[in-house]
Write a protein that binds this DNA or RNA. Structure first.
Length: 961
RNA sequence: GCCGAAGUGGCGGAAUGGCAGACGCGACGGACUCAAAAUCCGUUCCCCGCAAGGGGGUGUGGGUUCAAGUCCCACCUUCGGUACCA
């Protein structure tokens, strides 16, 4: 009975917390500081909880429990991101309604999470698939639909920052006289419909994501996939591109995540320039006047980040889908162009980028005029130009762009250098026969044939060959040439400054069943109308079967009665993507049962922003970008009070499986070194034999079959053979998945929590080790026996725990531990916090007298990490009820300092001895003591001390020789 | 290719520019036990030495400094992200 027995303790305290509502959070509490600590809520998969989930959850739980003891009002909720594909696929296969599967999975996840003893306020649980929740997802969609972005609107935000650009109610949109008002509004809304190409797989009867398409075939089943235009809902996230980039400066996120977000938005600055196409023999004359907002009919508009290289534009390339292709193609090229466009249609975006390393393309036979040189240049089509970026057309400057260069080389197009590289670049990239040439000669060679150099010069240099009667760029460095020519082009009405984003508008509709229906109806001519807020939620209709329809129509189209809204209106049958629900769940938690509105503004002002948000790095880009976007729209519309939702973000690192040692053997049974093998989809082979050879046998080795040798591990019985030693991502296929349920039933939740924190820094990728779990379990057992009498029949205090003051030494250790553990919790350094507590226990288990106050302090320090054991120990120590709101232990800072310190004595930076000095000894005193030391004196004898470096309290170093 | 992170004992990892390897695992030795498990005690970076002690050591090569795992430069390896974005 008195042994540490988590299986008894843990259910007891979980029941206590639940019954007493220990962690229910008051909505508003003006007396205490607030703290909103959020976990990324999970998708409740059929596989159940993974050991990766509790890593982040434990970290946040520690912070919450710690901060409650420090007097904070803490909001710590949990919920379910439960719409999504797996439940729907399961429904298709088994005809089980996704709701049933989802509910079962949620129940299992909840059970598993509760078994770990997290201090969530379960009364705030949300489920994105519940109509009470998605009602408000639809409501927010209507807000987005009701908003247009005014890029010129100047205003000041709540933090006093001057801002330009705001999402405004559509009613405030100025409408030009000559246009249809409704259509104009629809064209400006942040939620709009557009024809976009999607990957349609007729055989599977569904639309595939880009990554599901390989080589023009479906990943599953290898069926042909066609890109076809489909009317889809889009969200105008690009309107917020600048703010998504700029505002990220003001949040406390890891730099790599900030970089990734900036990268994803991919803002670039450059210019748009018009090239007139040549019809017949003469170029169409350019209309006088300012640069038109939309290009004229016979004009190809390009976007370039290097307007300074315009004089080097020797040809143009249109995306195969570009609307001007038909107009410009000459009859003799028509067949080739049509064929190329057909091929391009069958390639997914991924194929067009990843696989096509060699440039392909076809000449249209048509020409355009370089607006600055007046030269007639050929127009090609090629799939390396993407319709979705910029204007879908480029001016090609082969001398200064790698892609254009490769294309020009392939098709024999002229290369004209217009930027002079620095001498160092010329020397480094000089052709072999010119290695010894003078700089001037090298430059001449570059001007004559830049293609002879080892690399394409695409950096900044000095403009050359770029002046005529209208332009004068020669001699300008690139940084000056860009704005100069851009300004000149604008004056002449030929171009203008332009900004572009890699970020595309967000494709927001899916042809799926298990998602939020759009609160939208359409009339007979496909005009879009929002349903009234009083009609929300628009409930998902029941279906008998969930199979795809066999055409691009979404499954909801099968619910005929539902689709038919009225005589003239029908419902939108697409559903929202899984991101929708997760875009705003942090807002619902603050007021989860409100039936009048999505959240109460008072509560929103109190709780937002989220102070700490912890989750996996896999959401570094999309989820965080999407929810920041929604949040900004809500902010502009006055519905939330902060410009950013998540003030501090931390990514927990992935937990890998246990380290595995893998050897390889060939058909004859002989070992093959790991350095000599190559991995392919269909097996492991000797290097270079993946296509032809027979696969090698993969042998799992135990750790006593291998031995460390040099940099790596080798087979013990064959020490010349290197093996593969690494931890792999947990996966069903590899069979290295650790089930938290098993760990909990064997060692208890506290051990699982403690181990996951002890493994290493929260952000690091770490391999699992069952031995490590065993280690922290033993620690908890020692801590238990430090306080509980292991010999007694009943759970009672160890007789050595006495109500006496600690010794001076103990008092110091207690103070140091309180200080260090608190610091570690604040800084999320849980691994070292565990170490500190271990050191404490190691010290006190050796003590014959254990002051009860010290044991209480220890218990409170342990509580955030191992709450069940701590609660039980707290009870054994004679307290009633929970320790969750006990004040955090304090300490006397004077105790952190020692009276005497041992400091190292170095000679020439090498450790030669140690001396004990008073803690406040000054440099002179330390030097005197050190010189007096017998050994040091001996070593210094006969040497000249050139310098003495003393860091009081730390170290002394004699520079002597 | 580009962006980012990380390389420290057999393993996970610690170390405000100031004694490298805290803490844990594993291993080895011992105590307890008829025995085992559990528990407790001790040793454990490498080399030389019986010892005292000495030498080397934080991916590689340079540099800054009295002093570098830590700062700077170049490179190598691994992991993550991204990829014709004009």
């Amino acid at each position: 009975m008195p042994a540490y027995h988590p299986q008894r303790i843990e259910p007891k305290w979980q029941a206590y917390w639940e019954q007493k509502q220990t962690f229910a959070t008051p909505d508003l509490d003006r007396e205490r500081p607030k703290l909103y600590v959020l976990d990324m809520f999970p998708y409740p998969s059929g596989a159940g909880l993974h050991v990766g989930h509790p890593e982040g959850y434990t970290a946040t739980d520690i912070v919450c429990r710690y901060k409650r003891m420090k007097g904070y009002n803490v909001l710590h909720p949990m919920g379910w991101d439960a719409f999504g594909l797996p439940a729907e696929q399961y429904a298709v296969q088994t005809n089980t309604h996704p709701r049933i599967t989802t509910q079962a999975n949620i129940d299992n996840f909840r059970r598993q999470i509760k078994s770990l003893g997290f201090s969530y306020d379960w009364s705030r649980e949300v489920d994105t698939t519940s109509p009470d929740y998605y009602r408000w997802t639809q409501w927010i969609f209507l807000k987005i639909h009701d908003t247009w972005y005014d890029p010129e609107f100047a205003w000041t935000d709540a933090d006093g920052r001057a801002r330009k650009g705001k999402g405004r109610p559509i009613a405030e949109l100025p409408i030009p006289d000559s246009v249809d008002a409704a259509a104009y509004r629809d064209s400006k809304r942040l939620a709009y419909r557009a024809e976009v190409p999607v990957n349609w797989c007729p055989a599977l009867g569904t639309v595939l994501a880009n990554e599901e398409v390989i080589d023009g075939k479906s990943e599953r089943g290898n069926h042909p996939v066609v890109r076809m235009p489909l009317t889809q809902w889009m969200l105008r996230i690009t309107a917020y591109g600048d703010r998504l980039v700029d505002d990220i400066e003001h949040v406390d996120w890891p730099k790599p995540i900030k970089d990734m977000q900036r990268n994803w938005v991919g803002r670039s600055e450059g210019a748009e320039v018009d090239f007139a196409i040549v019809l017949g023999d003469d170029p169409a004359p350019r209309a006088a006047g300012p640069f038109p907002e939309k290009p004229a009919a016979d004009v190809i508009r390009v976007y370039t980040t290097r307007p300074d290289t315009l004089f080097g534009a020797t040809y143009m390339v249109l995306a195969p889908e570009h609307p001007l292709v038909d107009r410009i193609t000459t009859p003799d090229q028509a067949e080739a162009v049509a064929k190329y466009r057909e091929q391009a249609r069958f390639k997914s975006d991924l194929d067009r980028t990843d696989l096509a390393k060699t440039k392909t393309g076809v000449a249209t036979g048509g020409f355009a005029v370089n607006p600055v040189t007046g030269a007639k240049i050929p127009v090609w089509i090629a799939d390396y130009v993407l319709m979705g970026y910029g204007t879908g057309a480029i001016m090609a400057v082969p001398a200064h762009d790698e892609r254009d260069f490769a294309f020009a080389k392939t098709f024999g197009l002229p290369i004209v250098p217009v930027v002079e590289p620095p001498a160092a670049w010329l020397a480094a990239n000089a052709p072999a026969q010119l290695k010894e040439a003078e700089p001037a000669a090298l430059l001449e060679a570059f001007k004559a044939d830049p293609g002879a150099f080892a690399d394409v010069f695409h950096d900044e240099g000095v403009a050359i060959g770029s002046s005529n009667e209208l332009f004068a760029l020669d001699g300008l460095p690139t940084a000056e040439a860009k704005p100069a020519i851009t300004a000149r082009l604008a004056e002449l009405g030929m171009g203008k400054k332009a900004v572009n984003y890699k970020l595309r508008d967000w494709l927001f509709s899916r042809q799926r069943y298990w998602g939020e229906p759009f609160p939208i109806v359409l009339d007979e001519s496909d005009r879009v109308f929002a349903v009234g807020e009083d009609e929300l939620p628009v409930l998902l209709p029941e279906l008998d079967d969930f199979k795809p329809t066999g055409n691009p129509e979404p499954p909801l189209s099968k619910a005929k009665d539902w689709v038919r809204y009225s005589e003239t209106y029908r419902r939108e049958t697409n559903t929202m993507p899984q991101w929708a629900g997760s875009c705003w769940y942090y807002l619902r938690y603050i007021d989860p049962r409100n039936t009048e509105r999505p959240w109460d503004p008072e509560k929103e002002k109190y709780w937002l922003p989220v102070d700490l948000y912890v989750g996996g790095a896999e959401h570094a880009v999309l989820h965080l970008l999407y929810s920041r976007f929604w949040h900004k729209v809500l902010f502009d519309r006055g519905l939330v009070s902060t410009p950013e939702p998540f003030q501090r973000l931390v990514n927990q690192g992935m937990i890998l499986g246990e380290t595995e040692y893998t050897g390889f053997r060939d058909a004859s049974g002989a070992w093959v070194a790991a350095t000599q093998v190559e991995h392919a989809d269909h097996g492991v082979f000797r290097k270079g034999e993946a296509a032809t050879g027979t696969p090698l046998e993969v042998v799992k080795l135990s750790d006593d079959q291998v031995v460390k040798k040099g940099e790596g591990f080798v087979v013990k019985e064959a020490p010349e053979v290197r093996v593969d030693a690494r931890a792999h991502k947990m996966s069903k296929a590899r069979g290295n998945v650790i089930n938290p349920d098993v760990v909990v039933s064997e060692y208890g939740a506290d051990s699982l929590r403690l181990y996951e924190m002890f493994m290493g820094p929260l952000e690091a990728v770490k391999p699992w080790s069952m031995n490590g779990v065993e280690g922290v379990y033993r620690f908890l057992g020692r801590a238990w026996r430090m306080i509980v009498d292991a010999e007694a029949e009943e759970v009672s205090l160890d007789p050595r725990v006495k109500d006496t003051p600690p010794t001076a030494e103990q008092a110091k250790l207690i103070a140091r531990t309180v200080a260090a553990v608190g610091d570690d919790y604040d800084a999320l350094r849980f691994n070292t916090a565990v170490s500190r507590l271990m050191e404490f226990v190691n010290a006190f288990t050796g003590a014959e007298v254990r002051p009860i106050a010290a044991m209480e302090t220890f218990t409170l320090l342990l509580a955030p990490m191992a709450p069940h054991a701590a609660e039980e120990l707290w009870e054994v120590l004679g307290h009633e009820g929970t320790l969750s709101y006990e004040p955090w232990p304090t300490f006397d800072p004077a105790l952190l300092k020692d009276d005497e310190v041992e400091i190292p004595v170095q000679i020439l930076g090498k450790l030669r001895g140690k001396v004990v000095v008073p803690a406040d000894a000054d440099a002179q005193a330390i030097e005197a003591v050190a010189r007096a030391d017998e050994r040091i004196a001996a070593l210094l004898a006969g040497k000249t001390v050139r310098k003495v470096v003393v860091v009081p309290g730390k170290l002394i170093n004699f520079v002597a020789n």
